[in-house]
Nucleic acid binder design. Structure first.
Length: 852
RNA sequence: GCUGGCGUGGUGGAAUGGUAGACACAACAGACUUAAAAUCUGUUGGCUUUCGAGCCGUGCGGGUUCAAGUCCCGCCGCCAGUACCA
C-alpha cells in the first residue's frame, strides 16, 4: 500500500488517549459501598453481547454494535448517569477444542491467545469499557458460579400451583421418594434421541446441526442418556413476560412462535379396548374425523397392527427410523404412510375409523397421535386424497368461501349436538361434553422442548455431579469449581462416551463412586454473564445483593439491563435460555427482576463491499485492524455509525470510510493549521468572540439534534448534523472558540480521540476552555432562543403543488400569512381565472391554496 | 407454504401526513500546483426548454385527504426466520 500523508496525526494521539483512559481508569465505575460511588446519580446498564474470541479476530460486525453502545455510554455519562458498560469473553467452545485435537495443545492456550488479540483490538478502538470488570467464562472463578447456578436448578423443582421454582427440600420434607424427586428437578437426566456427531465426539443442539454438517462433519440420531433442563415448565411465563419488555416486535414474535403455544383438547379414542389419546386444536371437528394417525414410533403400533399388515408397517417404521428429523421434513413434499389394519372408535359417535401410521405425525409433540379431519386440515386432506380415505364436512364455511379444505371458523354441520354452533362455541361445548363424560379435557401444548444440556466435549464446565449406585448426587458448594483434568490428547473417543471418561483417575473416586463426565454447553456461561459484570470479582457469591439491586433494578421495569445490543442470531437461543435461568434465579430470590434485559436492539449485518455476506472464501472480509491503521479508530467508529440505521443490513464501502475520514480531517483543520515546515499549529482563525446569531443557531440546533438522535439511536442522522455544523463553521473568517468546544463535546461520544486531543490543544491556548477531559464534562444544553429565527421561509402551494417560497416574519399570524401568500405574483398567475375554495395555513411551513 | 422486514437518484441513505432526495460516496467541471496527491468551489433524479421556467417522478394498481414516500385495500419483487407442531 502506498504511503499516504496523514491528514491528521491520529496514529499519534489515538494510542495516547487510550493510554490516558487506561491509566486514569476514566471509565471504571464503582459499586455501591465502594470508594467514589455516587449514590445520587441514576444507574444505566449498557450491555454488548460478548464475543466468542475466535482465531480470526474481530470482524467489522463487532464494532458496529460496540460503537453504538459506546456512544450511548459516553452520552449517558455526560448526562449524569452511573454507567455500567463491561466487556468479557464467551470463551468455551468447539473451535478451541478442534484446535486442541489438531495440535494436542490445551484449549486454554489457544483461547488465551485469541482473547489477548480480541482485547488488543477492542482497546485500539477506544471503547469506554470498565476493564476492571472483564470476565471470561472459562476462568475457574467464573466456572465456579456457573456450576453453582446449575446446582440451584438441580436443587429446585417447579411448583405448578405457585407457578414458580421452589427448593427441592420441600419435596423431601413431604416424604417423596428419590425417584419422584429426581423426576421433578429442573435439572434432570433422561434418555432421548439426540444429534450425535461421531467425529466431533459430541451431541449437538438441533440448531447447531446444520452448521457443522456444512463443515463436513457427520451427524446422526441416536438415543442417549443426557442432562436436561426443564425450560418447558416456564413456557407460559416466557411468553407472557415478554409483554413488559422493550424488544423489537419481530424478536418477541420469534420467541412466542418458538415456544409455540396451542390451545386444544385431548380426546380419548379406543382401539380394541385400549385407550389412545390424541391432541387436537379443533375438537369441534370430531364428527369429521375419518381416520387416525399414530407416529411411527408410537408404542401402541405393534399391538394394533394386524398380521397381514405387519410386514408393511415394519418396513415403514424402518425407513422412518433411518431419517433424521431434518431429512424427514426435507422429504416431506409427498405424504406417506401405512395402514395398520387396526380401527379406533370415535367417542362422539362410536364410528370405527382406520388407524394409520405416518411420518407427518411426530412422537415428540402432543401425544404422538392425531385424529385426522381431512375436510378441515390441509395435511389430513392431502393424505386422505392420496390414500382414498373419506372426507366428511363438519364445519360450514361462511358464504363465499370456496376453499376445498376449509380451516377457518364457520358453523358446525353433520356434528350431532354441535350443529349450528359457530366454531368457538362448538369448541367450548364439545370440551365440556368430553370432560363430563370423562373422555377428554382442554389442554395446552407447547412446541418448546426441554433443553438438552450436556455435551461430550472437553472444553466446557464439568457437571458438579457424582454417580453412586446408579444415582446422581450433587457436589457440595465447597468443592466448586470442579475443573476438568489435563488430558494426554483431546481426540474424541469415537463413541458417545464423553471425552472426560479418558481421565480415569479423575473420574474414579473409589467405592464405585464416579464423576459425571459430560460437560455443559457454551450457553451455560452466557446465560448469566450480565449478572457477573455487576460484581465481577466477588469470591463469595455470583453477585452481591447490593450490586444486583443497584445495577439490575431500581427503575421499576421488569428487565434489569437497560440496553442490550447484539445480532439477531441469538433471538431464540441465548435470549431464551438467559431469560429462563434468570426466572429461576428470580423465583429462588437471587435476583430482583423477573427479566434480564429491558431494552433489546439488534444491529443489522454488515455485508461485504460486493453486497454478499462477508466470508473468507469470498475474500470480502474487512479487518478492523487495517481500517484503523489507514484511517484511525475514530474514522472506523464514525463510519460504522454513518453507514445507515443500526438495525439495517448494509454493505461496507471503503470510499465511505474515506468520506468520514475527510470529515474528521475538516474538524481537525478547524483547530489546527499546517505551517511552512509542515508542522501543526493552532489555527489563526480561532478567537474568543461571541458566536453571533447564525453560528449560534447551527451550533444549538446541532446540540439538540445530536442529543435527540442518540436517544433514538439514530446515529447516522446525528453525524450528518455534525457535518452540517462543521461545514458552516468552516466558512467563517473568525472561529468562535466556544462554538468549537460545543461541537467537540457533541462529537466526543462518536470520535473520542480526536475531540479530546483538540480540546486539550484549545485548553492550552485559551483560558475560557476547560482542560478537563471531555469524557468527564457535562453534555451541553441548547438554548431554545437560538433556534428561533426572525424570518422564516414559507412554501406556497396551489392545489398541492409548490409554486413559490416567501420569507415572512416569524410572529406573523395565520391571517397575515394568508394575505402575504395571496400577494405572490406566482400564486396570482396560477389562480388567475379560478375561484379560491379554501386556504390551508400550516404555521411555520406552508400555505396551500385550493382553487378551481 | 407461513411469519416478519424492506422496495426512494449511478451508490449508502434523509424526510412529526406538509418543499422528496438532507448528509455522504461516485461522476463531471473549475481553482491551487511544473505535475500529481491533498484541499477548496461549482454542477449532478428524468424529460422538455424561448434558460423565465414547465411537466413527470419514492416497485405496480386503486383509495382516503386541501396535501401521501408516509395512512388504507389489492398485487409484484427482494431479504431474513421457520417449516408437516395436529
Amino acid at each position: 500500500m502506498a504511503e499516504r500523508r496523514k491528514q491528521f496525526p491520529f496514529d499519534e494521539f489515538e494510542p495516547k488517549w487510550q493510554g490516558h483512559w487506561e491509566k486514569n481508569k476514566t471509565f471504571s465505575v464503582p459499586n455501591p459501598g465502594e470508594a467514589g460511588f455516587d449514590a445520587s446519580k441514576p444507574k444505566y446498564y449498557v450491555l454488548d453481547m460478548f464475543p466468542y474470541p475466535s482465531g480470526a479476530g474481530l470482524h467489522v460486525g463487532h464494532p458496529e454494535g460496540y460503537t453504538a453502545t459506546d456512544i450511548i455510554t459516553r452520552y449517558k455519562r455526560m448526562n449524569g448517569f452511573n454507567v455500567l458498560h463491561p466487556m468479557g469473553w464467551d470463551a468455551f467452545g468447539l473451535p478451541a477444542e478442534q484446535h486442541a485435537i489438531k495440535t494436542g495443545e490445551h484449549p486454554r492456550i489457544n483461547t488465551e491467545n485469541n482473547t489477548n488479540n480480541f482485547r488488543r483490538q477492542l482497546k485500539s478502538l477506544g471503547f469506554a469499557y470498565d476493564w476492571e470488570r472483564e470476565i471470561n467464562t472459562t476462568d475457574p472463578a467464573y466456572v465456579k458460579w456457573t456450576q453453582w447456578i446449575f446446582l440451584q436448578l438441580y436443587h429446585s423443582y417447579f411448583c405448578e400451583e405457585e407457578n414458580k421454582a421452589k427448593p427441592i427440600s420441600e419435596l423431601e420434607a413431604k416424604g417423596l421418594s428419590r425417584e419422584e424427586i429426581d423426576n421433578r428437578r429442573l435439572a434432570y437426566v433422561a434418555e432421548t434421541p439426540v444429534n450425535w456427531s461421531p467425529d466431533l465426539g459430541t451431541v449437538l443442539a438441533n440448531e447447531e446441526v446444520e452448521e457443522w454438517r456444512a463443515k463436513g462433519h457427520t451427524v446422526e440420531r441416536r438415543p442417549l442418556k443426557q442432562w436436561m433442563l426443564r425450560i418447558t415448565a416456564y413456557a407460559q411465563r416466557l411468553i407472557d413476560e415478554l409483554e413488559g419488555l422493550d424488544w423489537p416486535n419481530g424478536i418477541k414474535l420469534l420467541q412466542t412462535n418458538w415456544i409455540g403455544r396451542s390451545d386444544g383438547a385431548e380426546v380419548d379414542f379406543t382401539i380394541d379396548g385400549e385407550k389412545v389419546t390424541v391432541f387436537t386444536t379443533r375438537p369441534d371437528t370430531l364428527f369429521g374425523a375419518t381416520y387416525m394417525v399414530l407416529a411411527p414410533e408410537h408404542p401402541l403400533v405393534e399391538a394394533i397392527t394386524t398380521d397381514e399388515q405387519k410386514a408393511a408397517v415394519a418396513e415403514y417404521q424402518k425407513t422412518c427410523a433411518g431419517k433424521s428429523d431434518l431429512e424427514r421434513t426435507e422429504l416431506a413434499k409427498e405424504k406417506s404412510g401405512v395402514f395398520t389394519g387396526g380401527f379406533a372408535i370415535n367417542p362422539v359417535n362410536n364410528e370405527k375409523i382406520p388407524v394409520w401410521i405416518a411420518d407427518y405425525v411426530m412422537m415428540s409433540y402432543g401425544t404422538g397421535a392425531i385424529m385426522a379431519v381431512p375436510a378441515h386440515d390441509e395435511r389430513d386432506n392431502e393424505f386422505a386424497e392420496k390414500f382414498g380415505i373419506d372426507i366428511i364436512e363438519a364445519v360450514k364455511a361462511p358464504e363465499g368461501n370456496e376453499e376445498k379444505c376449509f380451516t377457518g371458523n364457520g358453523t358446525a354441520v353433520n356434528s350431532g349436538f354441535l350443529d349450528g354452533l359457530p366454531t368457538p362455541e362448538a369448541k367450548e361445548k364439545i370440551a365440556a361434553w368430553l370432560e363430563e363424560k370423562g373422555l377428554g379435557k382442554k389442554t395446552i401444548n407447547y412446541k418448546l422442548r426441554d433443553w438438552l444440556f450436556s455435551r461430550q466435549r472437553y472444553w466446557g464446565e464439568p457437571f458438579p455431579i457424582v454417580w453412586r449406585d446408579g444415582n446422581h448426587e450433587a457436589l457440595p458448594e465447597s468443592e466448586l469449581p470442579l475443573l476438568a483434568p489435563e488430558l494426554e490428547d483431546y481426540k474424541p473417543t469415537g463413541t458417545p462416551e464423553p471425552l472426560l471418561s479418558k481421565a480415569t483417575e479423575w473420574v474414579d473416586l473409589g467405592d464405585g463412586v464416579k464423576r459425571e463426565t459430560n460437560t455443559m454447553p457454551q450457553w451455560g456461561g452466557s446465560c448469566w454473564y450480565y449478572l457477573r459484570y455487576c460484581d465481577a470479582q466477588n469470591p463469595d457469591a455470583p453477585i452481591s445483593d447490593e450490586a444486583e439491586e443497584y445495577w439490575m433494578a431500581k427503575n421499576g421495569n421488569p428487565g434489569g439491563v437497560d440496553l442490550y445490543v447484539g445480532g439477531t442470531e441469538h433471538a431464540v437461543l441465548h435470549l431464551l435460555y438467559a431469560r429462563f435461568w434468570h426466572k429461576v434465579l428470580f423465583d429462588l430470590g437471587h435476583v430482583s427482576t423477573p427479566e434480564p434485559f429491558q431494552k433489546l436492539v439488534n444491529q443489522g449485518l454488515i455485508m461485504g463491499e460486493d453486497g454478499q455476506k462477508m466470508s473468507k472464501s469470498r475474500g470480502n472480509v474487512v479487518n478492523p485492524d487495517d481500517v484503523v491503521a489507514l484511517y484511525g479508530a475514530d474514522s472506523l467508529r464514525l463510519y460504522e455509525m454513518f453507514m445507515g440505521p443500526l438495525e439495517q443490513v448494509k454493505p461496507w464501502s471503503m470510499k465511505g470510510v474515506e468520506g468520514v475520514f475527510r470529515f474528521l480531517a475538516r474538524v481537525w483543520r478547524l483547530v489546527m493549521d499546517s505551517n511552512q515546515e509542515g508542522e501543526w499549529e493552532l489555527s489563526s482563525k480561532l478567537a474568543e468572540i461571541d458566536p453571533g446569531k447564525s453560528t449560534n443557531k447551527v451550533v444549538h440546533a446541532t446540540i439538540k439534534k445530536v442529543g435527540d438522535d442518540i436517544d433514538a439511536m439514530s446515529f447516522n442522522t446525528a453525524i450528518s448534523q455534525m457535518m452540517v455544523c462543521t461545514n458552516e463553521l468552516t466558512k467563517l473568517e473568525q472561529l468562535p472558540v466556544s462554538s468549537l468546544v460545543t461541537l467537540l463535546q457533541v462529537l466526543n461520544p462518536f470520535a473520542p480521540h480526536l475531540t479530546e486531543e483538540l480540546n486539550a490543544k484549545l485548553a492550552a491556548a485559551f483560558d475560557s476552555v476547560s482542560g478537563d477531559d471531555l469524557a468527564g464534562q457535562t453534555w451541553p444544553e441548547f438554548d431554545e432562543d437560538c433556534l428561533v429565527e426572525d424570518e422564516i421561509e414559507i412554501v406556497l402551494q396551489v392545489n398541492g403543488k409548490v409554486r413559490d417560497k416567501i420569507m415572512i416574519p416569524n410572529e406573523a399570524s395565520k391571517e397575515e400569512v394568508e394575505a402575504l401568500a395571496m400577494e405572490s405574483e406566482k400564486v396570482k398567475s396560477f389562480i388567475d381565472g379560478l375561484t379560491v375554495r379554501k386556504v390551508i395555513v400550516v404555521p411555520g411551513r406552508l400555505v396551500n391554496i385550493v382553487a378551481n
